[in-house]
Design a protein around this nucleic acid. Structure first.
Length: 149
DNA sequence: GCCAACGTTGGC
DNA sequence: GCCAACGTTGGC
């Protein structure tokens, strides 16, 4: 069962929001590498929910993939902040997945702690300047992060 | 708010 | 195909 990490700005969508909703569409990804990872996801995969661009960036919970990638409807919705002018109904290059809530990680596993963990040195997350918002997590990395709770 | 790092765009 | 300019991400 593959593992992933996905970033979201908690002001837009937080782990608490996912907890309340139970189920949500993970949309708005507008980076090809991240999109390709979305497309590699399978139902049943799990992911760390990372809070970015906030007071305490870090891993704030766990969710699971409940629907594999499908065309992202926000790309063709002019009302959406994620509207992509070049996308059309028949040629939409962007993908979304559906996710469900699994658990809150409290307190948040802060980025500074993640950076200090040798087992995570290979993760794009801890590399300076990395902006990748969806990334794979190895079994070893997954276990190392769980052990930090 | 600042700014470094990155991805994308577009002129040539 | 190169690369400068630009817009965005995201930590601090």
């Amino acid at each position: 069962m593959p593992y992933w990490l996905m970033k979201s700005e908690p002001d837009d969508f937080s782990i608490r929001d996912l907890e309340q909703l139970g189920l949500a569409r993970w949309d708005g990804v507008r980076n090809y590498q991240a999109r390709n990872y979305l497309r590699a996801m399978n139902e049943g995969d799990r992911f760390f929910f990372y809070h970015s661009s906030c007071a305490t960036p870090g891993i704030a919970g766990i969710g699971s993939i409940v629907r594999a990638a499908y065309p992202d409807p926000t790309a063709v919705d002019p009302e959406s902040p994620y509207f992509a002018a070049k996308a059309t109904e028949t040629n939409n290059p962007w993908s979304a997945v559906d996710v469900s809530f699994l658990e809150i990680i409290q307190p948040v596993l802060t980025l500074s702690r993640l950076k200090a963990e040798p087992a995570l040195a290979q993760m794009p997350l801890v590399h300076k300047g990395s902006r990748l918002s969806v990334m794979p997590v190895s079994e070893a990395q997954w276990q190392a992060i769980l052990a930090m709770r």
